[in-house]
Simulated scan of single mutants.
Amino acid sequence: MGIPQVADLVLESANAPGTGAFILGGAPDGRQTFADAFPAGGEVYYYASDGTQTEWGIGTLTLGSPNTLARTTVLGNLFGSKNALNFTASITVWSEIPAQRTQSLDDAGMLPVSGNPDFARDVALSAKVADGRYGAIGKVLQLTSTAVQAVTGPVTFSGITMVPTPTDYTQKQPIGASDADARYARLLGGNTWNNGQTFTSATSSQLINLVNTTAFDGTTWLNSPHLTHTVGTVTSHMFAQGSSETSASLAFVLGGRSGQLSNMTLSATGVLATSSGTLAFTSQLPFSDQALRWQVVTVRKTTGGSSSHTFPTAYKAGTTPFVIPVGSQEITGTSYGMPYLARNSDGSLAVSNTGFTVNWETNNGTTSGADAWLTYLVGGYFS
C-alpha cells in the first residue's frame, strides 16, 4: 500500500450504502468531487457520516458511471471499532486525514520519528539512529566484529576513500571500484558483454589488439587469441596464425561439443584449404575463358558419309560452339580415316548452337561399311 492522498474541499453525497462501497453522487457548489481531486485507483483518506454515526478510513476510488469509493481499510468509527458502519440513509463523504495518521511536532518544534526504522524502505530516519549507524565527519567511527557500519561516503579509512554508487555517469565524480568492475572492460579480461557492442576509433591504430604467441594448430583453438560466435552448442572461431609473413594464415573453425566439426584456412599465398579439401580459384582452371562451358558428345555413326547430330544441351542462340573430335571406336568395318566436320555452301563449318554435321569415308573412299562411336568435346556459351 502506498501513502493515501488527501485534498482540499473534497465533499460528495452518497446513497445509503449499507456496509458496501460508497456510490458517489456529486459535490455541492464550492466543493470538488473525489474524481476531480484524485486519479482512478488512487487510495484516499475519507470520512463518512449520516449525521448520527461517523466512520473514517482509507478508500479506493474507481471512476465510472457512477464513481465509487470502496471502503478498503476502516481505521475507526464513532463506536470505537474498526468495522464498516451500516449506513441506511443518505450520507456525506469528504477528504480528511484522521488524527491517528496526523504528524505532530514536539515542544522543541521537532518531528519525532521511529527509533527502529525499516532500512529496506524509503522512510524518515531519526538523527540519533543515523548518528549511531553512519560515519559522521569529525567523529571517530568505531567498527566492531558484531556490527558492520554502512558508509555512503566519501570517508577515508587508512588512505582508502570509499565512494557511493554513482547515478549520473555524465558528471565528473568518483566511481567505486565495484561499479567500474561491472561497467567497464578490464584489461586482464574476465568480462561478459551483453547486447550489441559498438567500437569506434578516429585513428588508424588498432582498436582491439589480441596478442598471443600460440597459434592454432588445426586441433586446439583455446590457446590462441581469437574471436568466437556461439549459438546453442555450436561455436565458430576465427584465428590469425603464423609468426612471419610466409607462414601467415587466417583460420575459421566450426566446433561443437564433440570437438572440431570443420575448418577453413586462407594462407598468405592465397590458397584456401578446408577440412574437405583445397579449393581452386578460377585462375587455376585449365581454360582461360571462364565463361566457356564444355560438353562431351558421343554419337554412333552406322554408315559413312554425312550425318547431323544434336547437342545434349543447346548453347546460346546466335553463338557457334567449338567442336573438337577426340576419338572413335569402330564396331564393324575397316575404316582408317578420322571423321571431320562438314562445311556449309559458304565454306563455314556446319556447326550451330544446337548441333553439328560430320562426314566420314571408309578406307576405300566410299561411304559404306562404317559403324563406330564418335566422341567430341564441345565448348560454348550458355549466356
Rank of each mutant, 00 (worst) to 15 (best):
Q5S: 07
S13N: 12
A14N: 05
T33G: 05
F38H: 00
V44P: 04
A48T: 03
D50S: 04
T60M: 13
T60A: 11
L69S: 07
L78R: 13
F79G: 12
K82V: 15
A84T: 15
F87T: 14
A99V: 12
Q103D: 04
V113N: 02
S126C: 01
Y134G: 09
G138C: 04
Q142W: 11
T144S: 12
F157M: 14
I160V: 14
P164T: 10
D179C: 00
R186Y: 00
N191I: 09
T192A: 09
N212Y: 02
T214I: 06
A215E: 03
T230I: 00
T235N: 02
H237Q: 02
H237P: 03
F239L: 03
F239M: 03
S244P: 00
S247Q: 07
G259H: 08
A273W: 00
T274N: 06
S283V: 11
L285C: 01
P286M: 04
W294F: 14
V297P: 02
R300I: 01
H309W: 08
K316T: 14
G327W: 07
G333E: 06
S335R: 14
A350G: 05
S352Q: 06
S352Y: 07
F356Q: 01
N359I: 13
N359D: 10
T362Q: 10
T366I: 07
S368G: 14
D371N: 14
L374P: 01
Y376R: 02
V378F: 08
